[in-house]
Design a protein around this nucleic acid. Structure first.
Lengths: 336, 336
DNA sequence: TTGAAAGCGCTAACAC
DNA sequence: GTGTTAGCGCTTTCAA
């Protein structure tokens, strides 16, 4: 069986407290330090985090609940987040709930049983009901990418400024003379969907254009959804002259649909996409798009969580809003 | 503070043993059962897995160490794996070591401290040195995708039949009359690299073709690597008439290089790629490729680990080899 | 069936 | 600086 501190104590002749202090950075006599170190080697001692957790009442584990692990946008966030968290000696348990609110709730409970110190959630259930237990248990909750209105003041969050991002993209198009601008959104009841819609509507109104539902489609944030949405937009008697597609997968689908229909970008149609995924950098390098700073989102999320974990007295719930960037490509041109 | 079993005991007037038995599926009198249930509700009792782990000496946590989280092939495996594991009440701590052996070793130690019940590893260090501590601590280790020779007999593994996969692809090309077949491999010292090379060499030799190093490139399994490898192959005085690219990212890079060079596939050059990623299904739907069953890899990995965890007496180290599939597309044609 | 009590490996007063 | 000791919340003999 694995060696314990008691074994070290016996081996070195020192008391438990001394051994414990040694591991926790206390002051221990040089001689005893060496004694302990050699005993550790000899007995292959590995500290037992479980016992420590029980005593200190913190597991140094952060639970992360996301809608989908097979999603480049999400994994790039998680990747940079986990990196920082682990450097601070926090482990991350990731639960993929497959965009299913029921699974999401189970995941939260699962993590609560394991006494995670904090919860990071890209929420599937927009009502936030799944987080109630965590909140009432006093576990710090940090939302990523999607805000939940009802939880305002009770949780922290890291999001991008979706309204501005969308506004900026659409503004760009109206400035180039476009007025029939197709919008491809995600699922209707998601936070990002409604925010991006707002930005679109604002930009149009500002330019004196009356928005019409005809030009708005919901593509479910999937490639297939984007594909279908664009096909359907192309069927309008008055075709849009420009398109704004609001996430990466749908942008891929949209480009595919245009390609299949033999529509040239930007000659026949201007397109602004969303999200830049490392892997594809070069493939769609000539696409004009809104770029979210995934790296920073991950980093800010980790740091904010660390911060919440530190202020155990009065947790201050902050909302960090990161801004996006419009990357100029060659998929947009002025309306003739 | 969170309620404990002791609180339940006080609330119900029952002994700790009874409460414990209730939660662990023992036989408890109906009346007491109801008593406990209402106390749980009233006190918002949440079982403490940490305390339980300390006592039972199992954390129901599996550590997963991978080279890269932002990789669609890997996440699709993890996703299906985690799904099954969580259904069996096991949590997964994922550590992304960024293909760095040093970080990989630290990750293993990190997980060992946390007393994970098992370790799943897509190894970065081909020597397996990073797993020594786990092995000597008696923690079951399961390798995925990449075997480590020295650990044979000490660990289980789930891999695909790389030699056959590669053989099949190259065979296909030789049968169509190709003899100058470019091969784009991953990093030189990886298991999959050498296996895929072997399959290539075998297939050529079988067809009476003498393999030449000239046609072999190492592309690091990255898109950029694949891109450069193909450019370099195109510089040969005797250009290859066909290409076999051995992973997904490099296949993307290869296609991009060909496109930039204005080389038509399959008219000017036949191409067989590797890996099918859900997201891209339609985009490269006309590519002939070797398809790995990511879903099954994840599933088999989870089941095998569960199995190892069950047989605590004599762990049987098994190696599960899954087979690949050659998906016919339109990127291959007979040599004129 | 139920309860009392010991102990899993560690930390943290507290006294020396 | 160091040792003694009492738990952290749970499971699990062992008796009743």
């Amino acid at each position: 069986m694995a060696a314990t501190m008691k074994d070290l104590s016996r081996e070195t002749g020192l008391g438990l407290a001394t051994i414990s202090k040694y591991f926790n950075g206390g002051t221990v006599r040089k001689k005893n330090q060496a004694l302990i170190e050699s005993a550790v080697k000899k007995l292959h001692y590995i500290p037992n985090e479980v016992a420590r957790s029980l005593k200190t009442r913190q597991t140094r584990v952060i639970g992360v609940v996301i809608p989908e692990l097979s999603n480049a946008f999400i994994t790039s966030i998680i990747s940079s987040m986990e990196d920082i968290l682990r450097k601070h000696d926090y482990a991350v348990i990731v639960c993929d709930c497959r965009s299913d609110p029921k699974q999401e709730k189970e995941a939260v409970e699962f993590l609560l049983h394991r006494r995670v110190d904090g919860l990071i959630n890209m929420a599937t259930d927009p009502s936030g009901a799944h987080l109630r237990a965590a909140l009432s248990a006093g576990v710090p909750v940090l939302l990523v990418d999607r805000l939940i209105d009802r939880l305002r003041g009770k949780v922290s969050a890291v999001v991008i400024d979706n309204i501005s991002a969308s506004h900026q993209a659409v503004r760009k198009l109206t400035e180039l003379g476009h007025s029939r601008i197709g919008l491809v959104l995600g699922s209707p009841n998601l936070y990002t969907t409604s925010q991006r819609l707002t930005g679109y509507l604002n930009a149009l109104t500002e330019s004196g254009i009356t928005p019409s539902d005809e030009y708005i489609r919901y593509g479910d944030y999937t490639m297939e959804g984007g594909y279908q949405a664009v096909l359907s937009l192309l069927c309008l008697k008055e075709r849009p002259t420009a398109l704004f597609v609001t996430n990466f997968e749908m942008t891929l689908g949209a480009m595919l649909a245009l390609q299949h229909k033999g529509i040239r970008v930007p000659d026949d149609l201007s397109v602004i996409g969303f999200d830049k995924i490392e892997l594809f950098g070069e493939i769609f390098s000539d696409l004009t798009l809104i770029r979210q700073p995934q790296q920073s989102i991950g980093k800010e999320t980790a740091l904010l969580m660390l911060d919440m974990l530190g202020n155990h007295d009065g947790i201050s719930h902050r909302i960090v809003t990161l801004s996006t960037e419009l990357t100029e490509g060659k998929s947009v041109r002025a309306l003739k």
